[in-house]
Design a binder for these strands. Structure first.
Length: 525
RNA sequence: CGGGGUGUAGCGUAGUCCGGUUAUCGCGCCAGUUUUGGGAACUGGAGGUCGCAGGUUCGAAUCCUGCCACCCCGACCA
C-alpha cells in the first residue's frame, strides 16, 4: 500500500485527521501510487488516479471547526524549529516580541477602506458573551439574548488595526521611533475552501509591525525583512525563492507595496511563502498616529508589516518530500540523527548500547539532535520506514554483527543511499553529512525551479506552456485589466515582479503593448 | 450557494443494481508461542446505533421519502 506512509505521516503531523480516499465507480487501479508531493496538494491530474488523497480535520459534530487542524507533537516540533530560527533573526535585526488582543472591535476594520475590503468576506464575528439553555425547552444551549455585545468583535484575521490603535498612544515624538515589534500568534480567516497547512481557517504565524519616521526608512525595513525571509527559506528550509513585488491586483489591502518570496513546489505550482508590506501612512492616517519631527512638524507615521505562517510547513513538505515520505532539511529537522540498534542476545544489546551512548554523546556535544530508538516492540525494518516517512535526515544502524569489525551503517534520507563507515570518527562524518544534505536539498530544488522556468513571448505559446506548470517569465503591460483577463482565461496569476528583473524592451504577452520588464506568471496555491 | 459524489469496527473496504441464515475481508488492537540486517509468522480473542428519522415488507445495510455530515469541481482567497 503506497498510501500507507502518507497516512502515517499525516497521523504524525496532525492529530485527529482522517484520511479519506475518495471512492469512484472505477474499482481497478486502486493501488495506484499516491505521490508524496500530492499529499497536501491533491493530485492535480487525478483522473489518472482512482483514489484521491485528501485530509480533513475531525469535525466531530461541530461544523464550526471546519478547516482547522490539530498539529501533533512532531509537526509542532518542526514549527518550533522554524519559530526559533526566525525569532533569532528578528532579534538580530532589532525587533522585539509583543502580544496584542485576539479580538478586534468591528469599527477598527472600517477605518481603512482597502483593508476592510480585503478581509470583510472572511471574518469570524463574536456577537454574544454568554450561553443559556434553549428557551423552547429542547436540550442544548443558545446565545443569551441579554448578553449581546454592544459592538461585535472580530477574531483577528491580521492585527494591523488593533496594533495601530495601540501605537497611537506610544508615539508622540520622533524620539519614540522606530517601533519594531513582532507578534507570534494565531489568526482566523474564514476561507470558503481550506487546504491543510496551506490555507486553514485558523493558522499560526508571526506578524511584524513597525513604525518609522520616514518613508525611506520604512521601505528599507520592508526590504530588509524580505531579505530575512528569503535567507530563512533558502538557508534553513533549503527552498529557493524568488524575491519580488506583487502586482497591484495581488497587493495586500491597505499597502502601497507588497514584497514577497515565491517558491516552486514539485508539481510546478507557485507558493507564496512570505510577504512584507510597505503600508505608507495609510494606517497612521486611519488611526491618527502622528509624531513631532525634529523640525517640530506634526507628521503621520510610516508603517510596515510582514509575516510568515504554518503554511511554511506545507511548503517544506511539498518542496522536498518523495514517495517514501517527508524529507526534512537538517536545520529544521526535530530529530537530525536516529540510531537504530540491531541485536539478538542480551550481550549484543549491551555492546550496541555502549556504542550508541558514545556516539550520541559525541553528537550532542556538536549540537546535533539525536534519538536512540531501542524500542523492542518494533523490528528494525519497521523503524527504518518510520523514520523515513518522518524525514529524519541521517540514520545510523548499529548492528552487533558489524560492531565486531568496528563499522556502522550510515543512511541518508535525501537520496536514500547507505554506506558503512568505521566507528572511529563517525560523529564528524555525520556532522559533515548533515551539511551535505542541507546543501543537496537546496541545489536539487534550485535546479528543479530553473528547469521549470521558461521565457515565453507569445500568447499561443503561453497557453501551451502554462499547462505544463512552472514559472513563465513574460512581458506584461502593467495593467490590472490584462492581469485579470489572463487569470480568467488560464488561472495563472502574476506571482511577482522580480526584484532582479533586467530592463528589457518587449511586448505584453496578451495585449501586445510595450513593456520593459519580465514578470513571473504561474498557477498558485 | 450551484453541479457531482460518498457515508458499513480505530483505519481501509465487500455486500446495495436484483431485499432473505450469525454483515465480508485486510490493516491495526489484545493474549500466547516462535522471532529481530528493509514494515515477522502462527494460534486464539475483543471490537458494529450498516450516517439519522420515518415508510414499504413476514423480513431492510439493500427499496422509497425526508434530513444530516463529509469530499470533489465552481464561486471565494495577499
Amino acid at each position: 500500500m503506497n498510501n500507507k506512509f502518507t497516512y502515517q505521516l499525516i497521523k504524525h503531523l496532525a492529530d485527529y485527521f482522517y484520511l479519506y480516499l475518495c471512492k469512484t465507480k472505477k474499482k481497478t487501479n486502486t493501488n495506484k501510487k499516491i505521490m508524496a508531493k500530492d499529499f497536501i496538494t491533491r493530485a492535480e491530474n487525478y483522473s489518472e488516479w482512482y483514489n484521491e488523497l485528501v485530509v480533513r480535520a475531525d469535525l466531530a459534530e461541530n461544523s464550526a471547526v471546519r478547516g482547522c487542524m490539530v498539529i501533533k507533537p512532531y509537526g509542532y516540533a518542526i514549527w518550533e524549529k522554524i519559530q526559533r530560527a526566525l525569532d533569532d533573526m528578528f532579534k538580530e535585526t532589532g525587533h522585539q516580541n509583543a502580544y496584542f488582543p485576539l479580538f478586534i472591535p468591528k469599527s477598527y476594520f472600517e477605518r481603512e477602506a482597502e483593508h476592510v475590503e480585503g478581509f470583510a468576506k472572511e471574518c469570524a464575528v463574536v456577537t454574544h458573551y454568554r450561553l443559556k439553555p434553549k428557551r423552547d425547552g429542547t436540550p442544548g444551549l443558545e446565545p443569551d439574548p441579554d448578553a449581546k455585545l454592544e459592538e461585535e468583535l472580530i477574531v483577528r484575521p491580521t492585527s494591523e488595526t488593533i496594533i495601530w490603535d495601540t501605537y497611537r498612544g506610544w508615539i508622540k515624538s520622533y524620539r519614540d521611533l522606530p517601533i519594531l515589534c513582532n507578534q507570534w500568534a494565531n489568526v482566523v480567516r474564514w476561507e470558503m475552501r481550506t487546504r491543510m497547512f496551506l490555507r486553514t481557517a485558523e493558522f499560526l504565524w508571526q506578524e511584524g509591525h513597525t513604525a518609522h519616521a520616514t518613508s525611506e526608512e520604512a521601505i528599507e525595513e520592508t526590504k530588509k525583512m524580505l531579505e530575512v525571509y528569503a535567507y530563512f527559506a533558502e538557508n534553513f528550509m533549503a527552498m529557493p525563492v524568488l524575491k519580488g513585488i506583487k502586482s497591484p491586483n495581488e497587493r495586500f489591502g491597505g499597502a502601497l507595496d507588497t514584497y514577497c518570496i515565491e517558491a516552486m513546489m514539485q508539481d510546478g505550482k507557485a507558493l507564496q511563502a512570505g510577504t512584507s508590506h510597505f503600508l505608507g501612512q495609510n494606517f497612521a492616517k486611519a488611526f491618527d498616529v502622528k509624531f513631532l519631527s525634529k523640525e517640530n512638524k506634526l507628521e503621520y507615521v510610516w508603517a510596515t508589516s510582514w509575516g510568515v505562517s504554518t503554511r511554511l510547513i506545507g511548503g517544506l513538505i511539498m518542496c522536498h518530500s518523495d514517495d517514501n515520505g517527508l524529507v526534512l532539511p537538517p536545520k529544521l529537522a526535530p530529530i537530525q540523527v536516529v540510531i537504530i540498534p540491531i541485536a539478538k542476545t542480551e550481550e549484543q544489546q549491551a555492546a550496541v548500547n555502549t556504542e550508541a551512548e558514545k556516539i550520541m554523546a559525541e553528537l550532542k556535544v556538536m549540537g546535533i539532535s539525536v534519538k536512540y530508538d531501542n524500542r523492542e516492540e518494533y523490528k528494525p525494518g519497521w523503524k527504518f520506514n518510520e523514520y523515513e516517512f518522518k524525514g529524519v535526515p541521517v540514520r545510523i544502524t548499529i548492528g552487533a554483527r558489524d560492531l565486531e569489525q568496528g563499522i556502522i551503517e550510515l543512511a541518508r534520507r535525501d537520496n536514500l543511499t547507505k554506506e558503512t563507515i568505521p566507528i572511529e570518527g563517525a560523529s564528524q562524518k555525520v556532522a559533515k553529512l548533515l551539511e551535505d544534505i542541507q546543501e543537496n536539498l537546496f541545489n536539487k530544488a534550485l535546479s528543479f525551479r530553473e528547469n521549470n522556468t521558461r521565457k515565453v513571448d507569445t500568447w499561443e505559446e503561453f497557453l501551451v506552456e502554462i499547462e505544463k506548470g512552472g514559472f513563465l517569465s513574460c512581458h506584461w503591460d502593467g495593467t490590472v485589466e490584462t492581469e485579470k483577463k489572463i487569470k480568467e482565461l488560464t488561472k495563472a496569476t502574476i506571482r511577482c515582479i522580480p526584484l532582479d528583473a533586467i530592463e528589457e524592451e518587449g511586448k505584453c504577452i496578451f495585449s501586445g503593448k510595450p513593456s520593459h520588464k519580465r514578470v513571473i506568471f504561474a498557477r498558485a496555491y
